[in-house]
């Protein structure tokens, strides 16, 4: 990639959007201040951008995401989403966890429609059944609408979980290691899907992952988090053209980003 192309993309990313998420000096301690999970974290997520956080296990990544999602209050600092402070779960957020967490007593379709059922009732869910079918179709699960989760493989369950996240048309996606339980082929496929969906919907996304290639592949920005108490120590812009494809993962630029991030993580681990 030439230098000019890189700066161009950088400018595009910078211009692309107003800040959707704004975190200012967010900290979080557990156990009445005994365990400090987050040191002050300040970060802006711009509209339509894809960010990843990568860091050693137990450094506070999930904590950060939970605070952002309004699942747990920060100890100090403020989180603002679309101009409003986050004081609890918000409708514009779609979340995905490490486990698919499908409910075994609901069919795949019912699982996908669960967010609507909870928020707007059974009636509303019924009227959006076609949307749900379309989403399942999109991730290659057509024909499995009326199947119960125990008949789905791990990858299929995770795909259904993606549909469940997307059914409410969230503007913001918070993803906590959603694909770490999947094998590499399925994972690549899911990453391609995720990229496509985010671009198509201009969604703002924040991904937590342990996979450096995954972070580089998906992100506009990769954040490195220090060991506990977690702090964002470095922000790395990924200037690879979009849409990205799997072949790019073998390119020298890609390899450079991966190596750089790995060295930064190693540094962190030695401290």
């Amino acid at each position: 990639m030439t230098g000019t192309a890189a700066t161009e993309i950088r400018q595009q990313v910078a211009q692309r959007g107003r800040p959707v998420y704004q975190l200012r000096n967010v900290t979080k301690s557990y156990g009445l201040g005994k365990i400090k999970a987050l040191d002050p974290v300040s970060v802006d997520l711009r509209e339509g951008s894809f960010s990843s956080v990568i860091g050693p296990s137990g450094c506070g990544k999930s904590t950060l995401l939970k605070v952002m999602a309004g699942l747990t209050p920060p100890t100090s600092g403020s989180v603002v989403l679309e101009g409003d402070p986050v004081m609890g779960p918000r409708r514009e957020i779609g979340m995905m966890f490490q486990q698919a967490t499908l409910f075994p007593w609901l069919t795949a379709l019912e699982n996908v429609m669960l967010p609507i059922t909870i928020r707007d009732g059974k009636h509303a869910a019924k009227s959006q059944q076609d949307d749900a079918r379309e989403l399942l179709d999109l991730v290659g699960l057509s024909g499995f609408e009326n199947v119960y989760p125990r008949q789905l493989s791990g990858g299929m369950a995770q795909r259904a979980a993606i549909c469940r996240m997307l059914i409410t048309r969230p503007e913001v996606l918070l993803l906590d290691e959603p694909f770490s339980a999947l094998d590499e082929l399925v994972r690549d496929f899911m990453n391609m899907e995720l990229q496509r969906i985010c671009t198509a919907r201009n969604a703002t996304a924040m991904l937590i992952t342990h996979s450096i290639p995954e972070a580089v592949f998906l992100s506009d920005t990769v954040y490195i988090m220090s060991p506990r108490p977690g702090r964002l120590t470095e922000e790395i812009r990924i200037d690879l053209p979009r849409p990205r494809n799997l072949d790019m993962m073998t390119s020298p630029e890609f390899a450079l980003y991966v190596r750089y991030i790995r060295s930064k993580l190693d540094e962190g681990a030695q401290v």
């Binding site: 939970k66 409708r91 957020i93």
Partner: peptide
């Protein structure tokens, strides 16, 4: 499961 339900409000 609890967290999912909480996140759905």
């Amino acid at each position: 499961a609890r967290m999912l339900f909480r996140s759905l409000g």
